[in-house]
Design a protein around this nucleic acid. Structure first.
Lengths: 348, 348
DNA sequence: AGCAATTCTGCAAGCGGTTACAGTTCAGCA
DNA sequence: TGCTGAACTGTAACCGCTTGCAGAATTGCT
C-alpha cells in the first residue's frame, strides 16, 4: 500500500502495472510479452497472459498511442453516406482496415470543403495515422496542412492519371466519355444531360467534362435546354427528365450523372409512356440494384465502390507502414448495357 | 539547448512546451488558455492563441486523452452499411456527434455477434467514451464487458418498452403488428410473409413475432408455404414473391420484412402481370425512396432512421457527460398507405 | 501602510504504456 | 572452476498534456 496514490486513477481499473505486479514481473516484460512475444520466455509469456486474462486487463490505447506515436486509426471523410456508393465504400474501408489492424474514424463533409478541412484537422488531433478523402478538389489549406504534418493520405473515387498524390478510383472523365461514345456509336447526336451539381464535386465536374469531350469530337455540344442540374434523388431525376424532354428538339438520349437521377428519369419516362429505348435512350453513371429490375432495365457504368474502398484502405496503410501492399489504383467502370439504350429513333 | 533531448521526439513537431516557451509562459497556462479561457487573463490568452497560430500547433489527442481519461470519441457498431437505413443512421450519428464535439469510430459486424464483441473490445481499448449498438441481442460476454467497464451505451433500432438498458428506435414487434392489423382491417385473412433471416437479428425476429401476434388474435397463422426467408436484396424479394405466390391457397397479401424485399416483390408482381393491389396487397417494413415512384407505389412503415441515429448519439453523449440532453426514445413508424395495398379480391 | 481576499501563474506529479540501456542468469567451453 | 556471450528481465526516463497546490501579484479595506 503505497503512501502516494495516483492523482485520480480510477479505482476499479487495472493497469499494466497491476498485471506486472500480480504476475511478479516488471511492466517492461508484460509490455514485451504482448508486443514482442519472442523476447519473453514461453513460461513467462504464459503466466502473463493468464494474469491478463484473470484481471481482464484492457490496454489503454491512448497511452499506447502516446508512447508509440502511432494510433492505428485511419480517418475517412466522405461527402455523405446517403448515396449507396459511399456507404458501400465505407463498409469496405472499415472491413479492410480492421483486417489490417486499424480502426476507422468517419466523418461526412456534406460536400462542404470548409467543413472537410475542419474534420481533417480534428482527425489529425485525434492522431490518425492516415486519411482517406474523396475527390481531388479540396480546400487549399487542406493540402498545406497535410503536407506540413506529413500525413499519409489518398484521394478516392478519382483517378486522373496525371494528378499528384495517390488517387484510387475510376477516371470519371474518361469513363463518362466512354459512356457517351457508346451513345454516339449507336447513332445518337442529340444528347441531354442530367448532371449532378458540380459545386464542390470535382467528380461530377469531371464526368460532365467527359461528356463534353466525347461530344466535341463529333462537333456536337449539349444544348442549354438539354442540360439539367440536380443532386441525387429520384424525385429530381423525374423532374429533370421532364425538363429536358419537353424541349425542341427532343433529345434522343439522356446521360445521367448518377444512379438516382437515372432511376428517376427512367421512372418518369415510364410514367409518361415514353418508349425507352425506342424514343429515347437513358444511360447512367454508376449502377445500383434496382436498375436491373425496372420494367426497362437501365444501361449503366458499374463503378466498383467497394473495391475502391478496399484499395484506398490498403493504400493508406501501405503508406503508413511503408510496406508495399498490393493496390489497384485505377478502377475502370464496366459498361453494363441493358434495356434502356439502343439506336435513336428514325427521323419521322 | 538542453543536454538531454527527448528519447525520440519527432524533430519537426511542435508541442505544448514549444508554445509555452515562445509565449513566455508555462505549459499550465497554455493548457488553461485553451480549456478554461476565463482562468487566464485576456492579454495572455491573446498572446497564447497568437503563438499557437504562429506555430501551427495541433494538440495531441492521445496525450490529452491519457491525461483526462476522456477521448471524446464514440464507437458505433452497425450490422452493415449496405442497407440504406443504417447508412442514413450512421450519417446522422456522425453529424450529431460532431455537433456535440465527439468523433465517430465505426465498425460493421456483418450480423456476427462474435465479431461485434471483438469490435466493441477494440473500441474500449481505443478509449471510446460510449457505444452505440444495434438491436438488443448480443453476445453474452458483451453485456458483462460493458458492465465491467462501466461503458455507457445505447441500443438502437429497438424499443421493447420493457428491456433493461437504453433503447432508441421503433418497437419492431408492435410496429409490424400494426402493419398486419391494417391488412386484417381491410379484410385480408390469407397473408404471406417475406421475412428477413432472423439469424443474429432480433429486430427481424421481433417483426416476425409482431406479424404472428396480430394474426393470432384472429386465430390465423401463416401457412408454411406462405413463409419465405431472405436477406435484403431485390433479387431475393423477387424470388420470394414467386415462392409464396405459386402456392395454394394464394395469399391475398404479402408482408415484407424490409424495403428491398418489398421492392423485389413489387417488381416481380409487376413483371408477372399480377394485379396489385387487386389480386394481392404488398406492404413493407421500412420505406425507401423508390417506393413512392414505382408504377404501383408501395405501402410502407416509414422508419425515421436518421432520427434514430440522431437520438442515439444524443443519448450516449448525455450518459457520458451525465447531462440531460433531450432524447426521444421511442420512434413510432408512420404507416404510409400507397397504391400497393387495398381490400382482398372477392372470392371467385 | 498593513493585511486579507482575489486573481493569475508556475511547478511538478501524474495519466498508462514503451523501450533504451543496464543488469542478471546460465549454458558452454577451456 | 573461471570466463564469455546469449538470452532474458528490470529500471526508469520518456510520450505530450492536465491540474492540484502553492506562490506571486494585484486590489480593496481599514
Amino acid at each position: 500500500m503505497s503512501v502516494v496514490e495516483g492523482r485520480k486513477r480510477h479505482p476499479g481499473s487495472v493497469g499494466l502495472r497491476d498485471v506486472a505486479k500480480l504476475a511478479g514481473v516488471s511492466t517492461a516484460t508484460v509490455s514485451r510479452a504482448i508486443n514482442n512475444p519472442d523476447l519473453v520466455s514461453p513460461e513467462l509469456r504464459q503466466r502473463i497472459s493468464a494474469t491478463i486474462e484473470q484481471l481482464g486487463w484492457v490496454p489503454d490505447g491512448a497511452a499506447k498511442a502516446l508512447a508509440t506515436r502511432r494510433s492505428y486509426a485511419i480517418g475517412a471523410v466522405f461527402p455523405t453516406l446517403a448515396t449507396g456508393d459511399f456507404a458501400r465504400a465505407t463498409n469496405a474501408v472499415q472491413k479492410e482496415l480492421q483486417g489490417l489492424g486499424y480502426t476507422l474514424l468517419l466523418a461526412c463533409s456534406e460536400y462542404d470543403a470548409v467543413q472537410e478541412l475542419a474534420q481533417v484537422k480534428k482527425f489529425a488531433e485525434r492522431g490518425v495515422d492516415g486519411l482517406i478523402l474523396v475527390g481531388r478538389a479540396h480546400h487549399p489549406d487542406l493540402y498545406r496542412f497535410l503536407d506540413k504534418h506529413r500525413m499519409p493520405h489518398v484521394f478516392s473515387f478519382v483517378h486522373d492519371g496525371q494528378d499528384e498524390g495517390v488517387c484510387i478510383g475510376p477516371d470519371n472523365r474518361k469513363a463518362m466519355a466512354g459512356l457517351t461514345n457508346y451513345l454516339i456509336e449507336v447513332g445518337h447526336r442529340t444528347i441531354a444531360v442530367l448532371a449532378q451539381s458540380v459545386e464542390n464535386n470535382d467528380r461530377a465536374e469531371a464526368r460532365l467534362n467527359g461528356i463534353r469531350d466525347a461530344l466535341a469530337i463529333q462537333g456536337i455540344a449539349v444544348r442549354p435546354q438539354h442540360m439539367a442540374v440536380g443532386r441525387w434523388t429520384i424525385e429530381e431525376g423525374r423532374e429533370m427528365f421532364g425538363a429536358v424532354w419537353d424541349t425542341t428538339p427532343r433529345p434522343t438520349a439522356i446521360v445521367c450523372g448518377n444512379a438516382h437521377l437515372a432511376v428517376g428519369a427512367m421512372i418518369e419516362a415510364l410514367a409518361r409512356g415514353v418508349d425507352v429505348p425506342g424514343a429515347v435512350s437513358i444511360v447512367s453513371y454508376d449502377d445500383i440494384d434496382i436498375m436491373s429490375h425496372l420494367p426497362v432495365t437501365v444501361t449503366a457504368l458499374r463503378v466498383p465502390s467497394d473495391e475502391v474502398g478496399r484499395n484506398a484502405a490498403r493504400s493508406v496503410v501501405g503508406m503508413v507502414e511503408q510496406r508495399p501492399l498490393p493496390v489497384i489504383y485505377e478502377h475502370v467502370p464496366e459498361l453494363v448495357i441493358r434495356g434502356s439504350s439502343g439506336p435513336p429513333p428514325r427521323p419521322a
